[in-house]
Nucleic acid binder design. Structure first.
Lengths: 185, 185
DNA sequence: CGTATCATGTAACTAGTTACATGATTCA
DNA sequence: TGAATCATGTAACTAGTTACATGATACG
């Protein structure tokens, strides 16, 4: 089943796959991205970390520091990496939101370049479809179309176009580093 | 307090402010935008409509049709419009997500052109700040920066740039229709 | 005759927020 | 002394999903 559920569990696990962090660190990091992915409150972040630890996907060590409160640093385990990989390897759903795609990008460091390439290619074809669907919707507009409807289509079209351009650029760079054989011909 | 909560209540109310619809209609409409705003399941959509009706913000009429199951068409009440207006008129929070902004655009048809103009201007200044913050983050990257981190910053930067361009264009068009006085000088 | 679309709904569960509580340190 | 940042946590609540149930009509 293609993943739709975008819970914080895997987002947190993906961040810990890149480097060990405390709950407070994670919160700060995600706050900077709050306009793209809504960031969790402490009230859900700490319990999430406890659950990951309980399930053996992360371990915790208390780090004592002078003149500052102690921090609980979490790091991913082998089982955690496996669980993350299994989640990542699921196929991309057609309705994948920006939010879910961003979660994927965050965890991208934890997967192989080939897997990343495949994922971005799948994403590209989906965004392209949405883009053309929006273009059709835009040209189908008439006098009865409300201001809201018009603005949304226009806005969505602009974002889709920008993402397409970004994906093309990213794919080009990635294919160069992943498959350098082509350059040597 | 600037709004952060992006619950479906006001999204649904905003859609009904534009035209009367059934729950099924709303679901279809939002499914087309599922990659931007995650669309509600029926399990939350129908209870939301019941709650809105209970609170007197919408009314419901059963429409019988031949050869098709009856539909329950909801339409916004005066109290509903007032509640929506009150929600819309809240100041734009600094961390407003794409999701919340989109909800605003959807309900934009229900507010005055001046209010829309002000809102878009506020949004523009915020996106501009995020954009420059991201540019700083991008130039601060070094060899230790993970692939995930790099991709996210790059992606976010592309989206922010696209939104800025869109906002400038939208603001220009809007100021022409809202304040035609300038053209007559 | 089975499957797809239209159309509504409820119940059990999960995930998340809000609001609170703690306690140290630093800065004005 | 009072506020701000660092750092963790819990309890009560709200919002949401998943999975089910219903029943008609249309299509092949």
């Amino acid at each position: 089943m293609a993943h739709k559920s975008a819970n914080y569990r895997y987002l947190v696990l993906g961040l810990l796959a890149q480097q060990p962090m405390s709950g407070y660190d994670i919160k700060n990091l995600l706050s900077n991205l709050s306009w793209l992915v809504s960031s969790p409150s402490f009230g859900s972040l700490y319990p999430t970390l406890h659950a990951l630890q309980r399930d053996g996907l992360v371990t915790m060590t208390v780090v004592l520091r002078e003149n500052k409160p102690p921090r609980k640093v979490y790091r991913i385990t082998t089982a955690g990496n496996e669980a993350l990989r299994a989640w990542i390897d699921q196929p991309v759903a057609a309705e994948t939101s920006i939010r879910t795609f961003l979660m994927y990008l965050i965890t991208a460091g934890a997967c192989t370049p080939t897997a990343l390439l495949t994922h971005l290619q799948q994403r590209r074809s989906q965004v392209a479809m949405r883009h053309s669907a929006l273009e059709r919707a835009a040209s189908a507009q008439d006098a009865t179309t409300g201001t809201g409807q018009h603005l949304i289509i226009d806005y969505a079209l602009a974002l889709a176009a920008a993402e397409l351009a970004w994906l093309d650029q990213a794919l080009q760079r990635l294919s160069m580093t992943t498959l350098p054989a082509y350059e040597q011909v």
